[in-house]
């Protein structure tokens, strides 16, 4: 808004004040601080936050402010932070006053689809009831639709979901998540979903540097730290692990670090009699990382 426009409008509302009052600033900041990489995702979340904030200001001026449709689909490879962001999303939307409670209900096909005729509808409705006023996160959403079986109960669940997504738009936000290719397939076979989901957010893979940073953050959260040489080892570990099958980005790193912690504990045990200092308790050494199978030295490790 330029100065001239501000002078002509009779009552003014400060966007900055509104922003501060909403309490969304710290949440976005936290998102920035705690989540490494994911630039396009953060960008989109900022846009949504801005839209909701502007809508709120518009409402103060008595302008029409139809609440936007906020159903989203998160696509990306395993371990790219879809669930983490969904959790944050619930908080952001709550702070912006878009959802009333701000809780997240995370479900998969099992929670929605029943095992026999007539079992699916109550099950799906139960989940939807629980998610009212918050965010419903459907992980691996493409499993809802089984193309090869036209009598699959998933279809019934999809129909109920679509109906609620349309009729209760201001009561809950549905976030579908899954791997990109399968989700594309899913949306192709369910055009109703595609049109009702306004935001398609793609989660890019992390770079090696991102993953290293993520690993260090994870360790810091658990009061561990990497020694210099261990850090170098982890730097080598990441591309080596990426080259192997079933690489799951941050999740692979978490698993690797969990195993490193096991080895560290084991090492402390075997070194036995030495007095344990805080330093030794919290440091992960190079050997703990190098022992990984990824380096191809000890297949049994």
């Amino acid at each position: 808004m330029n100065d001239a426009a501000r002078d002509t409008a009779a009552p003014t509302v400060s966007l900055a004040a509104e922003y501060a009052a909403s309490g969304v600033g710290p949440v976005l900041q936290q998102l920035d601080d705690e989540l490494v990489g994911l630039a396009p995702v953060k960008q989109r979340i900022r846009e949504i936050a801005a839209l909701l904030l502007v809508d709120r200001v518009r409402a103060k001026f008595g302008l029409a402010s139809e609440p936007p449709t906020l159903h989203m689909s998160f696509t990306g490879n395993p371990g790219t932070g879809k669930t983490t962001v969904a959790r944050r999303m619930a908080e952001i939307l709550f702070k912006l006053g878009y959802v009333r409670r701000g809780h997240l209900v995370a479900v998969t096909r099992d929670d929605l689809v029943g095992q026999y005729i007539g079992h699916t509808a109550p099950k799906t409705k139960e989940v939807l009831k629980k998610a009212m006023g918050g965010v419903l996160f459907i992980d691996e959403a493409y499993y809802l639709y089984r193309q090869e079986n036209e009598r699959d109960y998933g279809q019934e669940s999809i129909e109920i979901l679509l109906q609620v997504m349309e009729n209760n738009r201001d009561d809950l936000v549905v976030i579908l998540a899954g791997y990109a290719d399968k989700m594309d397939q899913f949306f192709r076979s369910n055009p109703g979903f595609r049109s009702r989901v306004a935001h398609h957010i793609d989660f890019p893979d992390y770079t090696d540097a991102n993953l290293l940073e993520i690993g260090e953050k994870m360790l810091a959260g658990l009061s561990y730290r990497l020694s210099e040489s261990a850090r170098a080892a982890l730097t080598q570990y990441i591309p080596a692990r990426r080259a192997q099958p079933l690489f799951a980005n941050a999740r692979s790193i978490r698993n690797a670090l969990d195993r490193a912690r096991l080895r560290q504990a084991n090492r402390l045990f075997s070194e036995g009699d030495q007095a344990l200092t805080l330093e030794r308790l919290t440091t992960i050494e190079e050997a703990d990382i190098r022992a990984s199978r990824v380096f191809g030295q000890s297949p049994g490790a």
Binding site: R100, R101, H103, L128, K129, K130, M132, G133, N168, D171
Partner: peptide, 13 residues
């Protein structure tokens, strides 16, 4: 219904 967060779920029922 004891595990709901929001009254809207009850209203649906």
């Amino acid at each position: 219904m004891f595990d709901l967060h929001d009254a809207k779920g009850v209203l649906m029922e």
